[in-house]
Amino acid sequence: MKPAGFEYHAPRTLGEAVQLLHRFEDDARILAGGQSLVPMMNLRLARPEHIIDINRIGELEHISTADGMLRIGALTRHNAFMTPPTDDPLGRLLAEVGRHIGHLPIRVRGTFAGSIAHADPASEWCLVAATLDAEMHAESSAGQRLIPASEFFLSSLASDLKADEVLAEVRLPLLGEGARFGFEEVSRRAGDFALTMILAVLWLDGGRIDKVRIGIGGAANRAMRAPEAEALLSGQSASPELLRRAAEAATASIDPIKDIHASAAYRRDLVRALTRRALERALA
């Protein structure tokens, strides 16, 4: 349970970190909060030869708003979201969802962007990013690249980030006044990874659902939207029957994982039940 040896680098600027990555590529890993990487190193599931610790790059710890997007720097900790980081409804959404991440000591160290880069399908932040079509801002020695969430999450623990790229910032679209959301998660114990979670975000126009986003996390090999369910709801007046059909469509859209904690059938049941509940909560 001790990590293998590695060479330690503590760059002071993003530019230095990018140069180190360029030099070592596959042999290096970025260390941010370490709440996923270090357990994997202790278990020797990961044995990087070089660790590039970005914790001393102060410029990466920021949250700001620009051009209708919330910009989250690579070193922003989970704990920064325990109170809403913006007056936009997105702030309340992040605060409510973020409370489900691990425990206090994990939220003190772990980072938003680290969670995104790790691409665990049961990560709350990956669900938020997928649901809201976040943009991932990657930096490499070749320049910058903006990756939409739909192309970023490839499968469990696999993202579109290249070996020489660092995820410098994640950008989430502000929701605008009137946005409503509902979040539902089931896990074995408080603070555990989600077996399944659903995030529903919607905008009403009169009595009708004008626009809706439904995201599914923990159930399949990556966080993803449920476009069939969204299409069923768009432009319609909410009714119990409509929500039931939307929940059914969301359930049909996933290829559930199975593990020691829950079978595929159970995860389907969770998607069905939690989609309905998340929508009800958003509409309440």
Partner: peptide, 27 residues
């Protein structure tokens, strides 16, 4: 547990609780 599950190694860093098995001393 040495992988961040049990919390036995919790210490305070700048008054905030952290799991000491999930950080390297040099940090």
């Amino acid at each position: 547990c040495e992988h961040g599950v049990c919390g036995a190694c919790t210490v305070l860093v700048d008054d905030q609780p952290v799991r000491a098995c999930l950080g390297f001393a040099v940090q």
